[in-house]
């Protein structure tokens, strides 16, 4: 399949979607059914923030295979997707658990042994690809990545000369994922999504994708949404499923609701540092496969950690 779809195809793919104002609240399991093996999956949020972890957790439980991952900056969620055998390909600008935990042993194991591909674009490169996808244009020009060695290792990239100024520009192709997974603070049953704090690349990602699965801390009424339409950042007709999952980013953060669960993330980092394969496998068994549902997973993270993360999360609104 070519990197960039023809405009005829792009329009046809949107035309065939049900864009009516309809309720689309489903369970995590049902939402996972919208993701097919081999799909290109855009992950919302960045690093430890607003990571759609509940949906990722469910995709691992559902045994999805060969997903291609796209994320602005990848962290432990992508380590888990590689280690669980769900994905062998990730397109991102930076991939490690986080600066404070050093270079990811899982990322190193899978990439250095060629068990997975880490396709590296600059942060703006990833952003401009989602934006081109969101705009319905086949590419966008930009002024970075030129001169570096990043472009040597990428096929879908083209140096060009500006027809107006004769300046060199880099053309990056539109990225239209098969499905986007995005976590928000609140949305209604139709998928009108309000997100607080940093939006990262999520709005472009939602507009670019062929399907959007929203997980949300809270499903609110459409009346509530209509009180502050200026706060709605993702329009309902781009959304295909809504799943209400409190603490749906745990142990990552959700702006204004909870900060990262630092103790758990430190503990996780120790497990995978000791052995990136076995450590990750044990973690996945214990925290992803064993719990009977998301709430039991949260119980395993522990009340003390949840309360502490929530207290720190709400503190952003206190001066």
């Amino acid at each position: 399949m070519p990197t960039v779809r023809s405009y005829d195809q792009l329009r046809e793919d949107v035309r065939s979607r049900d864009r009516s104002l309809r309720e689309k609240v489903v369970s995590l399991e049902e939402a996972a059914g919208l993701v097919n093996d081999g799909d290109g999956v855009g992950l919302g949020g960045s690093t430890l923030s607003r990571t759609p972890l509940a949906m990722i957790w469910q995709l691992i439980r559902s045994g999805r295979k060969d997903l291609k991952l796209y994320r602005s900056i990848a962290s432990s969620e992508s380590e888990l997707l590689l280690a669980a055998g769900v994905s062998r390909y990730i397109l991102t600008s930076w991939f490690s658990q986080g600066i404070i935990w050093g270079v990811s042993k899982v990322m190193r194991h899978y990439t250095e042994n060629k068990l997975a591909v880490f396709e590296e674009w600059s942060h703006m490169g990833v952003g401009m690809r989602f934006r081109a996808g969101a705009m319905g244009v086949p590419y966008l020009p930009m002024r970075t990545m030129l001169g570096s060695n990043l472009t040597n290792r990428l096929e879908d990239i083209e140096e060009s000369t500006c027809p107006f100024t004769d300046e060199k520009l880099l053309l990056v192709p539109a990225l239209n994922p098969d499905v986007a997974l995005i976590h928000v603070q609140r949305c209604d049953a139709f998928g009108n999504a309000q997100l607080d704090g940093l939006s990262f690349m999520d709005i472009d990602l939602a507009m670019a994708a062929d399907k959007v699965i929203l997980t949300t801390e809270q499903v609110v009424s459409n009346e509530q949404i209509r009180r502050r339409p200026d706060q709605t950042k993702i329009p309902f007709f781009t959304v295909d499923a809504v799943v209400e999952v409190p603490f749906g980013c745990a142990p990552h953060e959700c702006y204004g609701v909870y900060e990262p669960f630092f103790d758990h993330l430190d503990w996780y980092a120790k497990q995978i540092k000791a052995d990136p394969v076995e450590g990750a496998r044990r973690y996945i068994d214990e925290f992803i496969h064993a719990p009977k549902d998301w709430n039991e997973y949260l119980s395993k993270l522990g009340t003390a950690e949840i309360v502490d993360a929530a207290r720190r999360g709400r503190s952003i609104y206190d001066l």
Binding site: F95, V103, F118, E120, S122, H123, M145, L150
Partner: peptide, 13 residues
Amino acid sequence: RLPGTGGGNDISS
């Protein structure tokens, strides 16, 4: 294999 550029390439460009 190191974590990669992040925004480093963009900033230094």
